[in-house]
Amino acid sequence: MNAIVAKNLEKTYKVYQKKEGVFASLKGLWKRDYKTVHAVSDVSFSIEQGEIVAFLGPNGAGKTTTLKLLSGLIFPSAGEATVLGHVPWKRENEYRRRFSLVMGQKNQLWWDLPAQESFRLHKEIYRIDPQQYTRRIDELTSLLEVRHLIGQPVRELSLGERMRMELIAALLHKPDVLLLDEPTIGLDVVSQRRVQEFLKYYQVKQKTTVVLTSHYMKDVEALCKRAIIINQGSIKHDGPLSDILDKFSNYKIMDVQFDGDDMPPDFSQWGEVIEKEAPHVKLKVPRNKIPEILSSLLSKYRILDVGVQERPLEEVISEVFTEQKNDMAQSHDRKSMLKSTTD
């Protein structure tokens, strides 16, 4: 059963082009140049119920725009989408009671009041049954370890604590679809991990369909099996995370430990040296040449240990983005340059 289906979604904005200088600004008072920016173009995908999927992409790639479309915040310029059988931008209450959107640190909590007051308001807004409400609060606050804080004004909480409260507010009504835009942005490593662990546990238990965007590859690796890579407004990859490495990474990392000082002075014929500290060396090698390199090394030197690893996902993905960006710059395509300035 598909929870989310998007077909040829497109969103274009008109953006006012402000020129530099006072004179240009004055001119802008009566005559303005607008540029059309394609934030998202021809985006199609479907997500099954209970699946957890990551949107990856650099700033301005169109991830957030896609989430905004799915949550009904904006209308598409073309294309269609259904979430739980509803068209999101119709903003029907039945739909709005069944999903949640958490956007960075944009808070839905009342700043001057304790979080429990906001929760109580949510209970009414989402018509949560009182017994279920008490149970949910108990469960969520203890899972996220903030039970002792729900009586404290939100403004006095730390960023990590506030983010966890935001998550509770978003999950109180047991949404079937959860849209998370950068859920761990700005958090320290400990808070980040706690949020990750919580999301993972919660998602498995509740079978919630989750779509998340994140810059932190750690989030993605911890939570998702499937990733959709968006760049310049369109989908570049949709499939298992592990496929990304096969598809985009032509290299692997080889860790070699030589016996004593018996070690080649120059490695350039085998691969690129990443780290060298005798008797250890770390090489970046073409993935299809590993057997060759290995036998060549073994025939000439005494080797104690060898390990072969995938490159960190983060590195591979950032490489993909940089390459695409370079291609883009070379083609001097001004229109697509603008894409990365929206969002």
Binding site: G72, L73, R96, R97, L101, M103, K106, Q108, I125, Y126
Partner: peptide, 12 residues
Amino acid sequence: DGTIKKYLVQPI
């Protein structure tokens, strides 16, 4: 500043 999202996303 986008706070209005809150009202558009919630059934309110």
